[in-house]
Design a protein around this nucleic acid. Sequence first.
RNA 1: GGGGCUGUGGCGAAAUGGUAAACGCACAGGAUUUAAAAUCCUGUGAGGGCAACCUCUUGUGGGUUCGAGUCCCACCAGCCCUACCA
Length: 964
Amino acid sequence: MPHYQPGLIEPKWQSYWNEHKIYRCEDPKESDPKERDSKSGTTSSRKKLYILDMFPYPSGFGLHVGHPEGYTATDIYCRLKRMQGLHVLHPMGWDAFGLPAEQFAIQNQIHPAETTKNNINNFRRQIQSLGLSYDWDREVDTTDPNYVKWTQWIFLQIYDTWYDHDLKKGRRISELPIPEEVQKQGFEAVRIYQDQHRLAYQAEVPVNWCPALGTVLANEEIIDGKSERGNHEVIRLPLRQWLLRITAYADRLLDDLDQLDWTESIKQLQRNWIGKSVGAEIAFPVVQQSGPSGTISVFTTRPDTIFGATYLVLAPEHKLVDEITHKDYRQTVQDYRVQAAKKTDFERTEMNKSKTGTFTGAYALNPFSQQEIPIWIADYVLVQYGTGAIMAVPAHDERDFSFAKQYQLPIVAVVNPPEKWFQQTKSTLENFREAYCEEGVSIQSGNFSGLKTGECKEKIIADLEKRGIGKKKVNFKLRDWLFSRQRYWGEPFPLLHELDNQGNRTGHIRPLSVSDLPLKLPDLADFQPTGTPDGPLSKVTDWVRVSIDGKNYLRETNTMPQWAGSCWYYLRYIDPKNEQEFASKEKLNYWLPVDLYVGGAEHAVLHLLYSRFWHKVLFDLGYVPTPEPFHRLVNQGIILGEMEYTGFQEAELVLSTEEGPLGSESKPKLKPTGKWISANQIDFNGEKATLKQRNDLPIAPISVNSAEVEKIEDCFVLKSNPAIRVDARSYKMSKSRGNVINPDHIITEYGADSLRLYEMFMGPLEAMKPWSMQGVEGVYRFLNRVWRLIVDEGAEVAKLNSFVTMDLPTSETLRILHRTIQKVTEDTENLRFNTAISALMELCNHLTASKTRSYPALRTFLILLSPYAPHLAEELWQVLGENGSITKQTWPVYDPALLVAETLEIPVQINGKLRVKLEVPAGIDEKELESLALADAKVQSYLQGKTIKLIKVVPSRLINIVVV
RNA sequence: GGGGCUGUGGCGAAAUGGUAAACGCACAGGAUUUAAAAUCCUGUGAGGGCAACCUCUUGUGGGUUCGAGUCCCACCAGCCCUACCA
């Protein structure tokens, strides 16, 4: 085997690892030495480490290069930690429920279970071909009935829980105190009361109904008003849905972020999503000709500005609109409501330049200014947030200000802006040109004038509470989690709806008992959505209808969303085969929390928030030992396609005729004229180019080779015509762009070790970085150099290179070796893989240059390399004549004494500028160094005629001489 | 509008407040070869000088410091997320 052939050695070692279960992770008991034979030296105090990858959705397209990035990072880290003697749990599994498999089933009449199985097999094959060190005995699959059983079981725990706001803790529904007046009304009332408090409850809510997918979607699954999957229209529709009361945990989800080792940006995203705001709820009495009738409750974060509330606005969907609307205004109000209902949330917010609304004819009394103020409806007020109504303070809120301007509503200043603001905005107290939204001192606010904002808020709230017309209130943007989907390929709810003798629902819910779990999906021949909000399961009537003890029930026909399975998979890895519990308490106590969780930032909010929520419920119920699941979180950066250079030419539109599948087709095409236009005159979105000044002239983007381009100043230009600038950037990988890199191809061409090494060498793990095929070749060449370092390429069989000797390393080699041990260890521990790899390259370069290559040094080098290029390291380990797997070796420890060279090069600065470098013996003291520097002829020449003001000596680093 | 991230060679990048550009790519020259590929050696931030060497350089402008890519302030540019949340 003369050459480095990853295609041969990689499968060989992969099957070796598999057969010998090299990466099997022992259970805590097994790893206790008392339970094991004595030849293993591990101790029970072996520290545990739980390293988790975000498991993939096994799509039909296979892995993309983003997957190996995170997976390789954790793999390298785990390999290091195992060799350092830690007890590492590092599993992998499949998030396998979800829409694509069902969509595929609808189109091709292939059961989603089958598609899923095939995709999983393909993903497993691809992942295994990367040489990742997972314990495959712990693989989980969210669609496996043995897994679904416990997803359903956890749902039932949530269903059986209510949130005690006093204790700030989820508790069993049986512990819910029932108020006496409810108790008096009997069993039925108690049941309803309990149902109202469960963490899983049903409600009629306006949902996002997507006709094309035949399902409702969660808010989070909608991007720009279209479905995240497939980009279909979404309309709003009220429906009976299951919701999970995640809002009960909002405060804890927010507060507990502080104890987590996550990046500040992810924490901030979660904070924004939870969106806590503190303010007041205030009741405004409605005034009508016939006298006051009822109140409108509003939420505000600025109760201090209530004297400036000159009108109220209700959301068009607000319950009280019909009630309060004056008969003269019924028609316009009704028209407006119809219009608003037609708009999606997106359209409402899209045209945020001009607000719309209409007057209801009704007035409310401002309880502080005592003014009668008009009540409007407008779609800039959202029904879902707060009370669905606001008090508008146009002087101190931008939105209210622009609405007031539009409809000529009065603007009254009640917070005094600073003089500077008046100048900048050219405003006066009587005439605001824009809203002043900062804090300040109250004015025109009766007894509350002169108070600072913070104090004023408190006083107003106190006054509200005293008068019984309002109270302090905390609001969250976070909504309860819409938990049901009208789909087939998801976990069925383990619930039965009781029917009365007429076959009508009684409202009683009967949860299945644990012994009835898992509730499996029925077989289905036809996967077409019903087209109604009832899911496909409703078609399976003999599955839906159930009789128990003479009572008739209907099964719940909704299924759970894809998030359900991923909410707790990290718990199942801990005890994946357990049939009695989702995981044993003892093992959970041992392994939790997850020490390091690596995955894409796209799950920053949803998956991580939902998981934390479930985890907290399980924590409250005593099933898991930690309040948080994931201690440290790292997001890998996305990998972009190769850098692309694009030039632009004037073009003309021509009709080109093409032979398509439907016969010949004529399509307008851009035909470049050859006349270049500089990129600074062009707007280019990556696909279409238009001239900045005018858009009637067709422009053709022309892909330009990097060899035809050079950089002048800040921009790239054509070498042939430097006046013409060229657009240069990297794009996200996408099928339509054709810049997708398939990991399988890289492995075939260069091997998995090259792919691993390249992805780690590209740059910092968390940074976004462009792919470069030449970079892959670079690391491939490095691995070849490593190969030749040890193997004799001229020989027929794998044989040691003749430079390899049994000599001890020279002192220089030893120093470089130990410096490399230090750097690789520290960098790998801090996930700085790119610099660890350069240290390995430097060592390799040094060893290659030596005529004699010391065996002990090579041996250590291979151990250092093994987490990064495990296949190559195993193979060369064998070539060196070592026995067993290199993965079982102990990680080397560097000797600080060996890091020090005999002489040092010390830079001498004069006034902070580097002038001379001195070669000095290591360990020289400050005084000696100083006199050596001053004695230097060149230093002296710089000191001619100057006075020394200061000599700063940093031992073993540098000298700075300050002169005047 | 809000929040965040990032600005260093031709490119990916590196640098506990202490020699800016390690390592890799690309490029150029040389060795090897009938030739090419592969490999090996040398050079490579910009400008000046025959040379030793000198000057400039981390988006811009200030500041702290003996010393700033790194810390502080202001600004500019790019990217990402989010968006009427009262």
